[in-house]
Each structure stands twice: as structure tokens, then as C-alpha cells.
Amino acid sequence: MSRTLGLLLALALLGLVVVLSVAVGAENVPLGTVWHALLGGRTDYHSKIVLDLRLPRTLVGLAAGVALGLAGTLMQALTRNPLADPGILGVNSGAACAVVCAIALLGVDSPLGYVWFSFAGAAVASLVVYALGLRGANSGPVRLALAGTAVSAVLSGLTSTILVRDAATLEVVRLWQVGSLAGRDIGLLAQLLPFLLAGAVLAVLLAGPLNAIALGDELGAALGARVGLTRVLCGVAVVLLCGAATAVAGPIGFVGLVVPHAVRMLAGANLRWVLPYSMVVAPILLITADIAGRLVARPDELEVGVVTAFLGAPLFIVLVRRYRTVRR
């Protein structure tokens, strides 16, 4: 019962953050004006800011946040690895590399076109990392993280080799690569929404089987979970969610890492609760980070990817220091 209450509270907090995100920035918009602008029909300066800049940005943050939170939770459950995150496991750099290749080598120039490459890159990179990093049952978190680092290094080396030769692509990509919610195409978000929804539904459906597998493959199978199928579907969901989030907002790290940990502290280890909580808490974090990025360097902004890295990395290090490493 208290968990339901907590979820409702988190939802309320999310609503508050969304309102703030629309109102706060280089130009503060009074809440009354926000309300009127959202009701429509007005064309003054403030309404334009709200409708054309802040609202798309907030929606992108909402969608990317949900996706990253779910993806992080799924990855950590799937790999039984408390340190899994799309950034650390090389999914982001896979997406980035594919996008750069698409722009530079194939001449794809619209975001609507390179979305698909973002998906493909994320999928391939995560497959390779998974294959390199998982070795039997006792692979341990370090191996997976190392595999992610190594694969990321190859991919980002490839990316920079291309970018060094191609200034035009660099100009397009450097703004995408930092991970930001601002200036993203709302049409792109609409196009990606089906993928996000599919990933989210899949994630929620997998909560039961993943709970069983959390006890170990054998026990999970004995409890009636189909281990192989669950793994594959979980991988599909992760790629759908990460690929979509990265395509729309650029690579954003650590949200997927930190949120599941915070949520487990609040709601316990049952994925039936952890997944919905992650879905709400992650966008709160992402949008708050975005607001913070707007406030620290006014009138300039810090991109949300930079803010999450600076909030997330210290937390990651704290987790690492607390985590008792399993000996190989």
C-alpha cells in the first residue's frame, strides 16, 4: 500500500518538475502565462517560448527519461549486474558511431533518416559487448564493464577518425553527441513513440520472468520462466528503448545506472514495482538535470548529458566503493 502511495507521490513530483521545466530558463515565464499558453490561442512572446521551445524539450525529456530508466533496470536485471548502464556497456557509442557513419559515408542528412542507424548501432554494440562480457554464470560485473569500455574505444576511435576528415559531419554531430534535450525535433519524437511504447510494454511484461531469473538460471527455469526467451526479449526491449532515447536526445549516460539503484532502495527488489517506479523517477531526474543545466550557466546552458555525467559518475563511484567485488 505504501508503495502505491510512493508511486503516486513520485507522479505528483514528476508533474511539478514538468511544470517547472516549462516555466524556468533563461527567460522565466510566470505560471499563469504557461497555463494560458498551453490552453492555446495566444501568440505573444512568452507563449512562443512555451510552445515552441520548452514544451518539446520537456516532452523529449519525459520520453527519454522513461526509456533510459526502464532500459537501465532491464539491463541490470538481465545481466545480474548492478553496474550496467547503456553508457557503460557501449550502447551509446554504438549508436553514435552508426549515426556518424550514416551522415558521413552514406550522406543521410535528416534526423528522421539516421534514427534507424542509431537503432542498428545500439543493437550491434550491445550484442558484441554482451558476447564479450558474459562468460558463464560467474562472469562478474567487471568483465562486462571492461568489454563495454573496449568496444566503446573501438567505436569512438572510428567515430573520431571519420570526424577528423569531415568537418561538415562534425558540425552536425557534435551538437547531437553531447546529449541534450534542447532543439530536438518533436516530429522525430512522434515517429519514435511506437518503439518507445513497444519497449515499455515489453519491459513491463517481462517483470515476472525476470524476477524468477533473478534467483539464477536453474531456479528461474524451475519456477517456470523460459530463460532463453526472456533474455532475448529483454535484449530487444533494451535496444528499442536505448536506441529510441539515444536517437531523440543523443547519448545520455548514468540515468539508466542511478535510477534503478535509487528505486530499489525505495521499493525493494521486486521488478513489478521497480519497473514502474523507474519509469517515473528517471524522467524526474532527467528533467531536473535539464533544469539545473539551464540555471547554472545562465544565459548559456549546460547540456543535460554533461549534468547527468557530473551527478551520476560520483554516485557510480560511491556504488563501486560499497560493492563487494566478486573474485574471479
Partner: peptide, 24 residues
């Protein structure tokens, strides 16, 4: 060894975001 690796990954992530920022 393991902790060293993981802390390194965390710090690297921070630095690489600083770098992307500087590049933009």
C-alpha cells in the same frame, strides 16, 4: 584491481562529457 577498473570507468565518463561540452 576490479574496483580500480570500475572507478576508472566512472571518472572517464565524467571527463568525456567535459570533452564533448568543450567541443561543442
Amino acid at each position: 584491481g576490479a574496483r580500480l577498473v570500475l572507478v576508472g570507468i566512472g571518472v572517464s565518463a565524467m571527463l568525456s562529457s567535459v570533452r564533448s561540452y568543450l567541443i561543442t
